[in-house]
Design a protein around this nucleic acid. Sequence first.
DNA 1: GTGGAAAACTGAGTGCAGTCAGAAATTCGC
DNA 2: GCGAATTTCTGACTGCACTCAGTTTTCCAC
Lengths: 232, 232
Amino acid sequence: MARAALAASHPTEPELEVGRRQRNKLDKRARILAAARELFSRKGFPATTTAEIAARAGIGAGTLFLYVASKEDLLVSIFHEEMDRVADAAFASLPRRASVLDEIVHVYGALIRFHERDRGLARVFVKELMFVGEVNRASVGAFIDGLQRRTAERIEAAKARGEVDAAAPSAEIAVHCFALYIALLQRWLGLGTALATAEHVARLRLAFDFQLRGFVRGPRPARPSRAPRARA
Amino acid sequence: MARAALAASHPTEPELEVGRRQRNKLDKRARILAAARELFSRKGFPATTTAEIAARAGIGAGTLFLYVASKEDLLVSIFHEEMDRVADAAFASLPRRASVLDEIVHVYGALIRFHERDRGLARVFVKELMFVGEVNRASVGAFIDGLQRRTAERIEAAKARGEVDAAAPSAEIAVHCFALYIALLQRWLGLGTALATAEHVARLRLAFDFQLRGFVRGPRPARPSRAPRARA
DNA sequence: GTGGAAAACTGAGTGCAGTCAGAAATTCGC
DNA sequence: GCGAATTTCTGACTGCACTCAGTTTTCCAC
């Protein structure tokens, strides 16, 4: 019936009728992602049904699942795309003459600030991220690897300028920074910690600082160790 | 009808009839957990239906949800109980005269070995753990806090015997150890890394080692930094 | 005991993610 | 152009987690 209405809206030029079948698969996938993005952010993840998304994308309810494996995969696809952009922008805007720590916090802080825009969606995304199905696994893996590789590059650069011990295993440190990012993010979004974003970033900075300890050269002022809040 | 059959099976002693109503709520909850445990481990999480669990526990399908908030919460409750026991046992069997690192790896290694018994269930559990609903939040929080507190105690003990710098913030380090544990566990169970358990524990040890760097006193042999596998 | 309020339970019902048998469109050999 | 083979699409259908209006059981005041 949607189809009939569409055709009827151009009754005078039937040869120009751009039916659903003419739009190709890539276009269809793009429309699916756009529809889902709009509905998820307007109504929230649980309140959005896959049928709605399909309708808004102009396809049958079943067709949706020829393009995505599940409702959750759909969310991950959307976020993944945007996170890619955020990470690229963050690495492209690194602070000048800053310490490695500041550089790394700059990048992960950007990701956290991005998640803050819609905590409800971010919560679901972060929950699913590490458990994506076969379809998205490669791209999620590539995203994480890219993040870690570029983090390691910052550490290598710091080595080159003598800020970090040349023996420091950059790749491993980068892996651990990501681990800390994910774990603290989950605690922030998952369990009900009402921590402000700035506080959360500060915690992450502290964690990264710990991670870099023992590798950063030169006098390191013994920062006053703030006692952690009971369940922060 | 199940009720009628039960009553009919003891027709000669009606006053002794132990009907469903006599068993109290605690008993009922215990039966629910037992039924779920058996079915989850025999058939797996997705293949088990809540109706089956209710039937096996001898209650109505709807009654189940007066005791647990969701199927996932049910799994978390079960695992939580068992993890509590595993953690207690691990802390009670700490290696003698060992380093802090060995002590901490002993505890988290026990948890990992526990998860290995059924990776399918562990996968779901670890995914849900940080995102439990209101009902289990307090108990999960208490479990995590207990783990971190006892870890911090090991660090404090190491301080007392001069192994660790007195200025090291034990509580924060313990928090970060847990973060590393969770994040690496998710990567192990979530994304399809076919890492053997021993390898996984070795990775965790390396992570904890990094975390303790800068705080452990005395000469620390620069271990050959194994390059991390491309996507391990 | 008895009546009546409160608590606990029930299973038919609801809504939705995901499936699948068949329809429609597309491609291709001739 | 035409039929057959192949790909793509569809929406009615299925199965299951979870709900809720109605029922049963328990508690308690008298």
